Simulated assay, not measured.
Amino acid sequence: MASTPEMAPTRRKTSNGASRAAASRAKEKQLEDQIAQLQDDLKGIAATLARLSSEKVSEVRNVAKNEAQQLKNQGQHVIEDVQEQAGALEQQLKDTIREKPLTAVASAVGIGFILALLSRH
């Protein structure tokens, strides 16, 4: 049989191996905890990005609506101005026809004749 001093190193190896295994398990547990924390952090970051994205989309949508309304208002003003100018031109034309009816009739006939010639070709 082996003596006690010879067995002692074997026991040390066994207890040393057990402590290494325990240390390894502890490190694995720490890594798992860190990975779980990272996953939670990533979920939080993803939620924050989603919230920020939806806020930006809403902001851009509001800006686009405001710009569209401004363009619509500008277009309405332009249409009103053109209508006023067309009304003034129509009134001038009517006044000219009343002042010089023969000239107006001759001009209309001449324009009709020119348009007829152009449409033939």
Rank of each mutant, 00 (worst) to 15 (best):
H77P: 02
Q39D: 06
Q76A: 07
S54I: 10
Q69A: 10
G44W: 01
K65I: 12
Q30H: 00
A47V: 07
A23D: 11
G112Y: 14
T103P: 05
Q91L: 07
F113I: 15
L115N: 10
I114Q: 09
L42G: 00
R20D: 14
G17R: 12
D81K: 12
L31N: 08
E6Y: 03
A23P: 02
A18Q: 08
S24W: 12
L38A: 03
R98Y: 09
Q34G: 01
K27R: 09
G17H: 11
Q69H: 07
N16G: 15
R51A: 10
Q74W: 06
G87E: 09
A116F: 15
T48K: 10
A86H: 07
A64K: 06
Q76V: 02
E84W: 02
V63I: 15
F113E: 15
Q30W: 00
D41A: 07
A116T: 14
E99S: 10
M1P: 09
G44C: 01
D41H: 02
A36E: 01
E99C: 06
S15C: 07
D40V: 01
L31W: 01
I35E: 05
E99T: 14
R98H: 11
A26T: 03
I79V: 15
M7Y: 14
Q83E: 13
E80A: 11
L52Y: 06
L31R: 10
V63S: 10
I114K: 09
A8G: 04
E80F: 04
K29G: 00
N66I: 15
A26Q: 07
E90W: 09
N73K: 03
I35D: 05
A86V: 15
D41Q: 08
Q69G: 02
S3Q: 11
T10H: 09
Q70K: 10
A8Q: 08
A8R: 12
A116V: 14
A22S: 12
A106F: 12
K100T: 03
R12H: 08
I111T: 07
S15E: 13
K43N: 07
N73I: 01
R61L: 04
Q74S: 12
N16W: 09
S15I: 04
I97K: 11
A18N: 09
Q85P: 00
D40Q: 11
A8D: 05
H121T: 13
N73C: 01
L49N: 05
L31S: 12
D81A: 13
Q30P: 00
D33Y: 00
A26C: 02
A26W: 00
R51Y: 01
A2H: 05
Q70S: 13
E55H: 03
A18C: 05
E32L: 13
L117W: 07
V57D: 13
I35G: 00
Q83F: 06
D95G: 03
L117E: 08
M1D: 11
D95Q: 11
S54W: 04
S119Q: 08
N16P: 05
E55C: 01
E32Q: 13
Q37H: 03
A2M: 05
T103W: 15
R11F: 15
L71G: 02
S3V: 11
Q70A: 15
R25E: 10
